[in-house]
Simulated scan of single mutants.
Amino acid sequence: MRITQGCFSFLPDLTDDQITAQIEYMLSKDWAVGIEYTRDPHPRNTYWEMFGHPMFDLKDAKGVMMELDECRKAHGDGYIRMLGFDNSRGFETVMMSFIVNRPTDEPKLHMQRTDVNGRSQVYAWDAR
């Protein structure tokens, strides 16, 4: 199973050149760039661990790519995503996020639907 979250989730994994192009787009919008990682990619797990600090006032994508390389060294066996934050309204709003690293063996999830009480349905899932 392939985890699909954020922008580009149904496309093949982005290359480093494509990631750099997306970072340049975020920087052209004056968005702060952040890097997060997790081992639990469940869609309800919206709070991933932040790697370092959000990169405010950064003007060069190479700085973000250096930080991404460090995150890959430390957490390369998990999921890593890139986020673009817009603070033009006085608070941070995630404008863009996409996965930039996946583990070699992604977890398998199994969804079980059970009909109960007439038309009601109950869902359960387990990792395999």
Rank of each mutant, 00 (worst) to 15 (best):
N45K: 13
T38Y: 03
V33N: 12
D30W: 04
K59M: 05
H53T: 13
A61G: 09
T38Q: 03
G52L: 07
M26C: 12
I35Q: 13
Y25W: 14
D40T: 11
W31K: 02
L58E: 13
N45A: 05
E49A: 10
F51T: 00
G34D: 15
D57M: 05
E67S: 15
W31G: 01
F56E: 11
N45R: 11
E67F: 02
D40G: 04
M50A: 06
H53Y: 13
E67R: 15
M65Y: 03
V64E: 00
W31N: 13
P54R: 09
H53M: 08
R44T: 11
S28T: 10
P54A: 09
D60M: 04
T38C: 07
D30F: 13
P41L: 05
F51V: 00
L27C: 02
V64N: 00
T46E: 10
E36C: 12
Y37R: 00
R44S: 12
V64G: 00
G63M: 03
L68C: 02
W48H: 02
F51H: 02
V33D: 10
G63I: 04
E67T: 14
I35D: 08
A61D: 08
L27G: 00
R39A: 06
T38L: 05
T46K: 09
R39K: 08
T46Q: 06
E36M: 06
D30A: 14
H53P: 02
L68P: 00
T46F: 04
G34S: 15
I35S: 07
L27I: 04
K59L: 07
E36W: 08
H53N: 12
A32G: 14
D30E: 15
T46A: 06
D60Y: 06
S28H: 10
D30C: 10
G52H: 08
V33P: 07
M66R: 09
R44N: 12
D69L: 04
F51E: 00
K62T: 10
R39G: 09
L27R: 00
M50W: 04
E36R: 09
Y37W: 15
H42E: 07
L68G: 01
D40M: 06
S28E: 11
L27T: 00
K29T: 01
Y25K: 09
K29E: 13
F56M: 09
Y37N: 03
M55R: 13
W31S: 02
L68N: 01
V33F: 13
E67M: 15
V33T: 14
G63N: 07
M65R: 12
M50C: 09
M26H: 06
E36N: 11
S28L: 06
F56D: 07
A32K: 15
F56H: 13
M55P: 03
I35R: 06
W31C: 12
F56W: 14
P54Y: 14
P43I: 10
H42R: 15
T38R: 05
L68A: 02
M66D: 11
M50I: 10
D60W: 03
D60I: 05
W31P: 01
V64W: 00
W48Q: 01
D57E: 13
E67A: 15
M66H: 07
H53F: 14
L58I: 11
Y25V: 08
E49W: 08
W31Q: 07
V33I: 14
A32I: 10
G63H: 07
A61F: 05
G63V: 04
D40Y: 11
M65S: 04
L58P: 00
M26D: 06
H53Q: 15
K62E: 13
F51P: 00
G34C: 14
